[in-house]
Design a binder for these strands. Structure first.
Lengths: 233, 233
DNA sequence: CGTATTATTGACTCCATTCAAAGATAGTGG
DNA sequence: CCACTATCTTTGAATGGAGTCAATAATACG
């Protein structure tokens, strides 16, 4: 399968979401020169680890991953779930050292933008800096939403989580009402700061209310509006 | 008092913390040309508002501020407390529109780096981009710590908050054991995601345990080690 | 000096956790 | 192919941490 070798940002289906989204056609051709396609990873494999040196910013071509951080007591915290077209590695911008780890949640492929010479790159492709700042800013905004999220009740948090996935899948051309959680109940709980048993109970509650249908890790949103009501927006 | 007019990044006491920290002497002279000193604000005044266009990244020269976001229900969430030498405005990097507001917590003065022409600026001062990415990366890391923080019990959260302030004040040359909270109990609670009554009770508990002394908003840490133990690190 | 804001303290309530046990599912090797 | 194990999920019961409500006290402010 050498088809992958021929993939460029110019013909990638994620070009409206990923790094190229704000660049001109010429600029996209410029970054195509420096972007590398990386080999595929399997569930459980690390993309990078806390403490690793930042060598590249990465984009998910296909599959999902979890961004985690371990506290002093060895507890895992899931900061984020990453979908196709999303950039990762920003946690390494400070001191060129990653402060988080990223683990594939399923079979996953990546694209890589080497950033060891950011200044050189800036000279080469001026628009790229603007775009990277945009993505960094987006991450900051998302993280801040997560901080706010932790102040609301568990049920609303879960609704937010499901709606957020729905929205992001939709943006990527997937169904906004049917998708698969690549996280276990435990992982959802860790991500949202609630116990896994509570996740299970709340999912059941949503199912009983006919707002969603949930079968193992497959989610079908039946009543999007009702779910939004629970979320409170 | 025209002394302020003569302040430059080169003679600023915050040069090891603020934007100049990673720049060469020559680069600092370059940014001095574009940096503006802004007039002083009073407690309660807005530095910028949610929805405002991003015109500049700002640095706090003196005083403290709170970075807030309002949810759909009109509840205020305090994302961050900002101390002298800290940069703000990164929430406006995405789409050039601020998603948060910043309000002075006491008399405050600012420095301003106009970023309407980021690409031009990058050409002029290549090191600046690297430095801005560093600061943006730092913000991302700090926000992620806050996300993790919300998963731990209220008492540990409060201990973390006090120790975090202590550490940051120390870095700025202030006492690490004595400082003034510029936040009300309500604001501390909003920031940490706990009720104001709980803040009051927990502060009292720490005082009764002779770990801190608290008188109105003045904090004196008596037993730094014990406080670190509570925090759990 | 009076009013508004902020802080303290107590009593009660409840949401979510923890503990516990059983059930379901997936993966592995004989 | 089935048994065996590990992992994940569901469900119930009891507990507790932190919230809410309420009343009072202290402080700041005009």
């Amino acid at each position: 399968m050498n088809i992958d070798k021929q993939v460029t940002c110019n013909n990638c289906s994620l070009d409206t979401i990923c790094l190229p989204r704000g660049l001109t056609k010429d600029e996209v051709e410029d970054i195509d020169v420096v972007i590398k396609r990386k080999k595929t990873l399997q569930r459980g494999e690390y993309i990078y680890r806390e403490g690793d040196e930042l060598k590249s910013l990465l984009a998910i071509k296909s599959g999902t991953a979890k961004l985690i951080s371990n506290d002093e007591r060895g507890n895992e915290h899931i900061i984020d779930v990453l979908l196709p077209g999303e950039l990762l590695g920003f946690d390494g911008l400070y001191n060129n050292k990653h402060t988080c780890s990223v683990i594939a949640l399923e079979t996953l492929s990546l694209c890589e933008l080497p950033v060891t010479d950011l200044e050189g790159l800036a000279k080469l492709i001026p628009g790229l800096m603007r775009e990277l700042f945009l993505h960094a800013g987006e991450k900051i905004n998302e993280d801040r939403n997560k901080i706010i999220l932790k102040n609301i009740p568990a049920e609303e948090r879960l609704a937010y989580f499901l709606l957020n996935l729905s929205k992001r899948y939709k943006k990527r051309g997937f169904s906004e009402t049917e998708f698969t959680l690549t996280l276990t109940r435990q992982e959802i709980g860790t991500h949202l700061g609630i116990a896994l048993e509570t996740v299970s109970r709340l999912l059941k509650k949503l199912k009983d209310s006919k707002i969603i249908d949930v079968e193992k890790r497959n989610i079908r949103i039946i009543d999007l509006k009702a779910l939004k009501n629970i979320q409170g927006s």
